[in-house]
Amino acid sequence: MSASETTAASRSGIAGLVERFPFLPALVILIVLLALNGWFQPNSLGFRAITGLISTYLALMMLAVAQTYVVYSGDVDLSVGAILSLVNCAIVVLMERWGGGGGAVLAACAVGILTGLACGLLNGVVVAVLRLQAIVATFATSILFTGMALYVLPVAGTPAPTVYWRTYGGRFFEIPFVFYVVAALAIVLAIAVRARLTTQMLAVGDDAFKAFQSGLPVTAIRLKGYVLCGLFSALAALCITGDTASGDPLVGGAMTLYSVAAVVLGGTALSGGRGSVGGSVLGALIIGLISSFVFYVGTPSQWQNLVQGLAILLALMLGILVTRRVRA
């Protein structure tokens, strides 16, 4: 099933639209969820609630973007959560050690981003260059990164400097800081979608061998995907540090699987070759909205996880079925 053979133009109506914009089903689910949330709790659509939702789920949005860049070429990265934990611990410890001033914060963030890039590079070498199986190899590196996070910060609790989380949770010209981040992310992703590398990664995901035969440096492309994944995982760590205002060597543990779920919810095929980073961002928001919806409906606390799990499973199935029906 190669996307290019049946061009969007030749297909009519909704089918053509979904073919061209794989994130459309996610957008519909997102709007329905927003409407449901608004129905049960009108305040949930207010400015304050939306700001809260975004500052909590910005990290997952970044992490979903990170995951998308490896899924594009048919790989997967089970270490994104561990990279997030490692960078979170590293920057919190460095900020504290360097005095917690503005300069220290910026320097620590730079070190954090470099750490993420290095982790991504290691994953890329292991999976693309040494050709180990992505699922198990990145699980092994996730153990390594978790170990490093524990080495940097053995117990959770070191606080981030006030200036850091005040900035993250603060406002500039009456607009919350996180909105600027979202805008910047949107611009970067919009440019990246048009980049040659994106097309190359999708070509590798569609059929690695054909891509190789047509002269693409497959190994290098997959490697770059993992490096990008490391970069965005580090950015996710910067966000979660702003949100939780502390370091925790296990903070990212549960987020890896959510990042995969967000990518799938966003209409990206796990087999590679088709998808969009924008969809993954929507997927992360869907997960956030599902959990707030479960809360607003008044589900008894012990049932919340179950209802949330069922709703995510349902959304995953629905998204895949709709996408498939349209493409068939």
Partner: peptide, 8 residues
């Protein structure tokens, strides 16, 4: 921490 790094 060392244990986990070696294990990975």
């Amino acid at each position: 921490s060392g244990r986990q790094m070696i294990f990975g």
